[in-house]
């Protein structure tokens, strides 16, 4: 059992020689924060792209309904975007708090 490196030792090997524990923690937090935001942005990006694309299609087919479609589109964007923004808040919390 002792022959196997612990998870902490594996993590510690990733950092260059002479890194203190506090620095290592900062680096890990920054790296995790970047990944957290990057992952959180994927879904909403696809969602908003699809949503706006469909809205443009609807507006092109029925220009007289453009106003209504636009309002609904902004609503949809607001709901979809919330996920990405929560990801951004997690980024801020991981990086700075």
């Amino acid at each position: 059992m002792s022959a196997l490196p612990t998870a902490l030792q594996i993590v510690a090997q990733q950092f260059p020689e002479g890194t203190t524990a506090a620095e290592a923690q900062d680096i890990a937090a920054a790296t995790n924060a970047a990944f957290a935001y990057g992952l959180a942005a994927i879904g909403p990006a696809i969602g908003i792209g699809y949503l706006v694309g469909q809205s443009v299609q609807a507006m092109a087919r029925q220009p007289e309904a453009a106003g209504q479609v636009q309002t609904t589109m902004f609503l949809g964007i607001a709901f979809t975007e919330a996920l990405a923004l929560i990801g951004f808040v997690v980024f801020i919390l991981l990086k700075f708090v």
Binding site: Q14, F15, P16, T19, E23, A24, D26, I27, A30, T31
Partner: peptide, 8 residues
């Protein structure tokens, strides 16, 4: 490790 070095 590259990321670590960069941030240091």
């Amino acid at each position: 490790s590259l990321m670590g070095q960069l941030s240091i």
